[in-house]
Every structure is written in structure tokens, then in C-alpha cells.
């Protein structure tokens, strides 16, 4: 999300409002069984999710999603760091990994039913399996992409291998890891729903499916809206966490957004021909240019 001012907030709300109003006008006119007006959907939403079904369906769904996601991130980062560091192991395991990664998790539902049964473990397994790959592969990329100079530096200062891994490689790979984790979050939410379509006895996806079975279309839509809000909220949360953890990265690659006191301090020594336009151009090109390697600072700008 862009760091925005109040005007931007207002602007961002205009399109959704227009869409909602447009839909409502059409729905009232068309009288389509499958597309009820907003007031009906809203009524169902309030009935179900404010807050009657929250403990019985929303919380179990979220708990499973978060459990699966946590497992995926933990395994993904650890395995990714191992595979990123040990070239031969990575090559040996590559075909297997590529195969497993290509399996769409929904096709594994029967397998997970067999292995784990119809309970929470099957769902958590499915979510973890699907969310694992972006984290794993991005971690491997992040580890491999660590600047050799910084590794040489660490070695030259006799920093022990374990510290190199945890204090140099891991932070350097963190931007890529976060990117993978973000994709994985979206996948986890999708699979949270998918995993509840078979062998479930509670959950948001389950509720939506039940509503569909019972031709309770407004309730079905209310659940769908809730899922959208859940996704939105988690993404916003993720971005906030990422911004704190990767403040250094955003600063060094110029992605900070509006100029702040920090970015103005970037130009330290008085330059002979420093005009406002030159500063603006410099800041803009800093914001636009991608970093050549993670964790590094393009030095051309610094002269």
C-alpha cells in the first residue's frame, strides 16, 4: 500500500463505492435470484458474522489457516536456507521439489483425507503444502542472491559460519523471503476455503458451501464478502509488519515513498551545482531504479 495522505484515502474509496452502488442499483432492478441487493446481503452478513458465527466458524478457519501458514513459513525458511547454501543438495533434490511444487493442492484432497482423515490436520496439511513453495523458493533465491562481497567481508573478519548464516545471509535474504511469504499468505487464505469444501464440519468456506447447498444465496454472498475482508485485513497486517522489519531495505532502495527527513539527509556534502531540479531527479531515479542485488546500494548515485 502506498503511504497516502487524506486525499488519497478519499480517492481510494471512490471506486469501491461506485461499484457497490452500481451493483445495488442493478440488483434491485434485475431481481435475479443469484444476485440479491446489498441490503439483503448486508442483513445476512450482520446476522452471521456480527458476531454469531465468529467463534464457531471464523475462528476455526483462521486458526487452521494461521497454523498451516506458520508451518509453511518455518519449513520454507529453514529448508530454503539449507538448499540455498548447499549447492549439491539443491541440485539433487531439484526434480523432486519441482514435481511436488507443481501438484495443485486441491488434487491432494483425497490423499490428505486418507492420510490425515477428515479433521483439522488434513486441512492444515493442505494449507501448509500449498503455502510452502513460494516461501521455500524465494528463500533459496534470497540466499543465493546474497552479495558475495558481503560474505567475503564476513569471512575476512573471521565471523564464524553459524553467525554468517544467521546474521548476514538471513537478513540479506529477508526481502526475498518476505516477498515469498506474502504470496504464500494469499495462497493460504485460498486453501483455507478450499480445504473446507470436503470433510469439514465448520469454517467460513464450509458455511458458504452449506448456504449454496441450501440455496441461501444471500448467506453465501455474505460469507464471500467476509472472505474478501479477511484477505484484505491480513494483507494490510502483513504490509505493516514488513515495513517495520524491512525499513532498511525500503530506505536503501528508495522505496520509502514521500520524501522524509531521512531522504533529505541523503545528500550529505554540499554539491557544487546542486539545484532543486537535480535533487528531485535524483530522488525520483532512486525511487524508480531497482536494486541490482538485494541488500546493496547502487553506488552510481553516490558520486
Amino acid at each position: 500500500m502506498i503511504r497516502a495522505r487524506l486525499g488519497d484515502w478519499a480517492l481510494a474509496l471512490v471506486v469501491p463505492l461506485l461499484l457497490l452502488v452500481g451493483y445495488d442499483l442493478w440488483a434491485r432492478g434485475a431481481g435475479d435470484f443469484f444476485f440479491p441487493p446489498l441490503s439483503v446481503i448486508g442483513g445476512n452478513f450482520a446476522d452471521d458474522w456480527l458476531f454469531e458465527r465468529v467463534p464457531t466458524d471464523l475462528l476455526p478457519s483462521l486458526a487452521r489457516m494461521l497454523a498451516g501458514y506458520a508451518i509453511a513459513v518455518a519449513i520454507g525458511v529453514v529448508a530454503g536456507m539449507v538448499l540455498g547454501s548447499l549447492r549439491t543438495l539443491a541440485i539433487a533434490l531439484d526434480p523432486v521439489l519441482q514435481f511436488l511444487r507443481a501438484l495443485p493442492p486441491p488434487t491432494l484432497i483425497p490423499v490428505s483425507l486418507l492420510v490425515f482423515g477428515a479433521g483439522d490436520s488434513a486441512k492444515i496439511f493442505l494449507i501448509a503444502l500449498g503455502a510452502l513453495w513460494p516461501v521455500l523458493l524465494n528463500t533459496v533465491d534470497g540466499v543465493r542472491g546474497v552479495d558475495p562481497t558481503v560474505l567475503d567481508m564476513a569471512r575476512s573478519y573471521r565471523i564464524p559460519a553459524r553467525a554468517r548464516l544467521l546474521r548476514v545471509v538471513l537478513p540479506a535474504a529477508l526481502p526475498r523471503i518476505f516477498a515469498g511469504a506474502r504470496t504464500a499468505l494469499a495462497i493460504a487464505i485460498i486453501l483455507m476455503v478450499v480445504s473446507e469444501l470436503v470433510g469439514a464440519s465448520n469454517g467460513v468456506g464450509h458455511t458458504v458451501q452449506l448456504a449454496q447447498r441450501g440455496f441461501n444465496i444471500p448467506e453465501m454472498w455474505a460469507g464471500t464478502v467476509l472472505l474478501g475482508l479477511v484477505g484484505f485485513a491480513f494483507n494490510a497486517l502483513f504490509v505493516a509488519v514488513e515495513r517495520r522489519a524491512l525499513g532498511w531495505h525500503h530506505g536503501s532502495t528508495g522505496r520509502g515513498g514521500a520524501p522524509t527527513r531521512r531522504t533529505r539527509l541523503r545528500r550529505e556534502r554540499p554539491r557544487p551545482v546542486l539545484t532543486p531540479t537535480r535533487t528531485a531527479v535524483a530522488v525520483e531515479s532512486a525511487a524508480a531504479g531497482p536494486a541490482p542485488t538485494e541488500g546493496s546500494v547502487p553506488d552510481a548515485r553516490r558520486q
Partner: peptide, 11 residues
């Protein structure tokens, strides 16, 4: 190192 920017830890 010659390339100072890449030898410093940005975080």
C-alpha cells in the same frame, strides 16, 4: 574492499 557499499550491511 573496493566496493564499500556492498561490503557494508544495509540493515
Amino acid at each position: 574492499f573496493q566496493d564499500y557499499s556492498r561490503s557494508l550491511l544495509p540493515w
